[in-house]
Design a protein around this nucleic acid. Structure first.
Lengths: 121, 121, 121, 121
DNA sequence: GTGGTCTAGACCACA
DNA sequence: GTGGTCTAGACCACC
């Protein structure tokens, strides 16, 4: 698990971390029960404040991706496979919806859009 | 041209206005030379501050979508057709790139993604 | 709306604030759309850090009690009446469940418990 | 005596153990003089650290529920019946007080609360 | 060692 | 003016 942050990106650092972890959990790269590195370690390695890391972890716990056990660490939360799949769909669906409405607003037709995706994948 | 804002949306109001105008210019719905309604009118109709509208207009002028003629109002800037096309591509390309990397991070394959787009369009 | 915190209480300050606001929203004392005092004001008046207040507000927004509009303030979120009622029930139900299992573990019978409640209300 | 811990619960593990033992002593399930299983046994069976179990035992001894006899183990402390009863009352009274003020804050009336208890018992 | 909370003070974007 | 984010550094409880 290699995390990284881009301080120039306008999206908040804690958000960037959230997205990376959430994606890995949803894609299965991080398995339920797997321990995460300590906040202090992540903080040191990425060069960001402990609190920034904590913000990300806190949001992840709130959204059911992580479980934190004070004194012993943070772990990937157990997740039902169907539930996982539905979350993946939900996320992707939102992104697809945004892109499609964007394309429509710009007057781009379906074929052009599909071919752009085909090419970029 | 019917503008609208959603104050509960996390994206700044001036950004919402920017996106709507820019899309209409790029898609051709707003033709070069067309006049925009006065700031005070937009402000009143949308229920937002004039300063907010002004911010959006400024950003649009900065990016070459609008021209301000002191005393007579704002107008859609003349735009070269190839230039317009390149801007459309640029915008869509960024959106497509984001979606594709998102899909990859979630472990979704190309066919699934394409079919989702097909369906939502 | 008179907020207060007890620094000696073992429950975190931001949690105390959360509970007070949430209760007022659920009981209807705070009506949907009502503005909350600025974070800075609350912070000053209660003698706690702005960040502590923000933590509470953030959790409240996440849980649907508040809406925050950057630059203009925080407001009580619109809430469906049936939804409100169900949240009240949920909260109270959890508390009742805890008390009942506690009483059972201590070997206290139903009548004794009911009379204690009757008396304390 | 069957102890159990839930590591995902937000309340500290040693606290969970404390509550279980204390409840059993107060309800009379554990009689004065009864021996407790060795710390190492509890530790092994529950899959928690011996230090954690020790913390719970220490707190219990501090509060007068247990007696430690070096070399021979821990035993339920002798307890005066009136004293026992007063402790039960104290504990329950606190819990009832919390629930009642909670109900009041939520705008729930006495009858509703009583019927909820009646039903859940 | 771990995470949980809080403070003080700073900078930015938005209205 | 508002909220949003980040830093540095501290103390605590738990394992």
């Amino acid at each position: 698990m290699k995390l990284s942050v881009n301080p120039n990106d306008k999206t908040p650092i804690y958000r960037q971390l959230y997205e990376q972890i959430a994606s890995e959990v949803l894609s299965g790269t991080l398995s339920p029960g797997a321990p995460l590195p300590p906040i202090r370690t992540v903080s040191r390695e990425l060069g960001v404040s402990m609190i920034t890391v904590r913000s990300a972890w806190e949001a992840l716990e709130h959204d059911g991706y992580l479980l934190t056990r004070a004194g012993s660490g943070c772990f990937v939360a157990p997740i039902n496979e169907t539930h996982r799949q539905s979350k993946v769909d939900e996320r992707l669906s939102a992104a697809v919806g945004a892109l499609v409405s964007d394309a429509k607003a710009l007057g781009v037709d379906k074929e052009t859009l599909l071919s752009m995706i085909e090419e970029r994948f």
